[in-house]
C-alpha cells in the first residue's frame, strides 16, 4: 500500500541552524505513529514543516503526501487536502467566534473535497454532535477563537476541530502538555473515536503517559534531529523507565543500548 505520508532524508534549518538532520518516515493510512523525544530534539519543527509554517528552510529531502510534493502546496492547500495540525499553542483571535471561524474553515475544506457548503443550521447540528463527544458546552461556539480559554480548553478545542474537520492525517503537537489526567482521557477518547482505516495520526509527545490512552502502532524516538530508533509500544515504556539520558550522545555517535 502506498504510504499517506512519506518523508525522505529531510533536513531543515531554522535561522541557519540545522534542526532536522535527515528524517525518514513513512506513515500509512490507519496507523498511529508516536514521535517521542527530549526538548529541542526537533519534534515541533517536524510538525511545523509538515504544516507549512514560515521560517523553516528545507535544506534537503522531500515529503510526499498522497503522492504529491508537500512543499509545493500552500499551508491552506495542505489543510484542504486533509492535513491537520493540533497546535501546541493555539492563537487567540478576538471578535471572531468559534462558529464563524470553524464554519469558514469547514466550508473551505468541503469545497476542496467537492462537497456542498454547510449552512449555519447544518453546521450547528454537526458541531453540537462533535462537541458532545468531548463534553464541550454548546456556548463554546459563541466564544471568540481561543480567547480566554484555559490551557485545557485550548487543547480540547484543538481536538474538537479535528473531530469536525475529519482530516486524513492529523498531527498532534504535544497535545498532552499541561493537561490533567481527566482532560487527557477526554482528549484521547476523541482521538480514538476518530481512528479509522482511512486516517493516520502522528502523535508528538514528550511523555509516555498519553500513549497509555492513545495506543500507537509505531513509536519513533527523535533525538538531535534524527530518528534514532523505531519500534513498538514497548519502546515508549522503556523510554519512560530509563529517561532520555539513556540516549545521550557520546561525541558524534548516538549510543543506544540494545533492546532485549
Amino acid at each position: 500500500m502506498e504510504p499517506l505520508l512519506s518523508i525522505r532524508n529531510l533536513r531543515v534549518a531554522v535561522d541557519g541552524r540545522e534542526i532536522l538532520k535527515g528524517i525518514d518516515l513513512e506513515v500509512c493510512r490507519g496507523e498511529v505513529h508516536a514521535i517521542m523525544g527530549p526538548n529541542g530534539s526537533g519534534k515541533s519543527t517536524l510538525a511545523a514543516v509538515l504544516a507549512g509554517r514560515e521560517g523553516y528552510e528545507v535544506l534537503e529531502g522531500e515529503v510526499l503526501y498522497n503522492g504529491q510534493n508537500l512543499f509545493e502546496m500552500e499551508p491552506e492547500e495542505r489543510a484542504r487536502a486533509g492535513l491537520f495540525l493540533a497546535f501546541q499553542y493555539p492563537v487567540e483571535i478576538a471578535g471572531v467566534t468559534m462558529a464563524t471561524f470553524l464554519r469558514t474553515a469547514l466550508n473551505e475544506i468541503r469545497k476542496a473535497r467537492g462537497e456542498e457548503a454547510l449552512d449555519p443550521l447544518a453546521f450547528l447540528t454537526l458541531a453540537r454532535e462533535r462537541m458532545e463527544w468531548l463534553g464541550i458546552d454548546p456556548s463554546f461556539l459563541h466564544r471568540a477563537v481561543n480567547e480566554g480559554f484555559s490551557g485545557g480548553e485550548k487543547k480540547r478545542s484543538e481536538i474538537f476541530q479535528l473531530l469536525l474537520l475529519e482530516p486524513q492525517l492529523a498531527i498532534l503537537d504535544e497535545t498532552d502538555s499541561g493537561l490533567d489526567i481527566d482532560a487527557l482521557k477526554i482528549v484521547a477518547s476523541g482521538v480514538n473515536r476518530m481512528r479509522a482505516p482511512e486516517r493516520a495520526f502522528i502523535v508528538i509527545t514528550h511523555y509516555q503517559r498519553l500513549l497509555n490512552y492513545i495506543v500507537p502502532d509505531i513509536v519513533h524516538v527523535l533525538f538531535d534531529g534524527r530518528i534514532v530508533r523505531s519500534g513498538g509500544r514497548e519502546l515508549a515504556l522503556q523510554l519512560e523507565e530509563h529517561g532520555y539520558d539513556w540516549l545521550r550522545t557520546d561525541g558524534e555517535t548516538v549510543v543506544l543500548p540494545t533492546l532485549e
Binding site: 500552500e74 499551508p75 491552506e76 484542504r80 471561524f101 470553524l102 469558514t104 469547514l106 476541530q161
Partner: peptide, 9 residues
C-alpha cells in the same frame, strides 16, 4: 498561519 492551517486563505 493558524487560519491557513484550517484551510482559510
Amino acid at each position: 498561519f493558524y487560519c491557513r492551517q484550517r484551510g482559510i486563505a
